[in-house]
Simulated assay, not measured.
Amino acid sequence: MKIEAVSNSYKRWAPVYDSTFGAVTNAGRKRATSHVTERGGEVLEVGVGTGLALPLYGPGVQVTGIDFSPEMLAKARKRVAEDGLAQVAELRQMDARELDFPEARFDFVAAMHVLSVVPEPERVMREISRVLKPGGQALIVNHFAADRGVRGFIERAAAPLESLLGWHSDFPISRVLGAAGLVEVERDSLPPMSMMTWLVLEKQG
């Protein structure tokens, strides 16, 4: 998907995102923020969107959020200001394919429902690996394509609508598993109806 299509799609979705996609993806958001809060440290949230996850990070966590969409970021900044979210260090407009951070900067990188949206997800995963500290973890929450069955058929049929939907319905998990230095340590299914996947990848030292 081209970056212009992503930008236009999320410009359309920004006003209603929280009550539509945001509601459907709540389980993964809670799983990721709880994982970070239990351990503490600095987390980069790639594709922070409207900031739905930001209030869920607890004490001992410092959050940096990035997003390509100015419309989404405007809503996230408003949320931070209105809710007084002291755990949020910074929100920046940025292309996830070229993260403007030094190597080994973060304890965690969370990418929730973003990898099937961005162009060149393999390149994004390489950047995620680069900015993670040794022993740090990439926390992935995403919908991945079913290999077979009715769901797989529906996903393949919806694939030509990706520019309208704003995400790849037939996105294979293999596209996030090949980044050098990242090893899968955990995988689980998430609601609704096990359509979402929780994935933890650890940076080897």
Rank of each mutant, 00 (worst) to 15 (best):
H35T: 12
A158S: 10
V114R: 01
E82D: 11
F21A: 15
V63G: 01
G41Q: 03
R12E: 14
T37S: 04
R148F: 08
G152N: 04
E155K: 03
S34L: 06
Q93C: 10
V118P: 06
L56S: 12
L190A: 06
G135H: 04
S69L: 04
Y57W: 08
D147K: 06
E120T: 03
G136I: 11
R92D: 11
R29V: 05
A111G: 15
G65D: 03
L165H: 04
V6C: 02
V36C: 13
A138L: 07
G152L: 14
R175P: 01
S194H: 06
N8L: 04
Q204C: 11
S169E: 10
L54A: 05
S169F: 00
S189P: 07
R151W: 07
L165N: 03
V200P: 09
T20M: 10
V176E: 15
H113V: 04
F144E: 03
R123A: 05
M125K: 09
G60P: 15
L139F: 08
E202N: 07
E186Q: 05
V43C: 02
A76S: 09
G181S: 12
P55W: 01
A159D: 15
M72K: 03
V6Y: 01
I128E: 01
L73N: 02
L52E: 08
P134Q: 04
V124T: 10
A23L: 14
L190T: 15
L199Q: 05
A110K: 02
A23F: 11
G60K: 02
L201R: 02
A138C: 06
L91H: 05
E90R: 07
V48K: 01
V46N: 08
F101E: 15
N142D: 11
T50K: 07
Y17K: 12
E202Q: 14
A23E: 15
W13R: 07
Y57A: 13
V185R: 08
G84Q: 02
V61C: 00
R151Y: 15
R130G: 01
L91E: 00
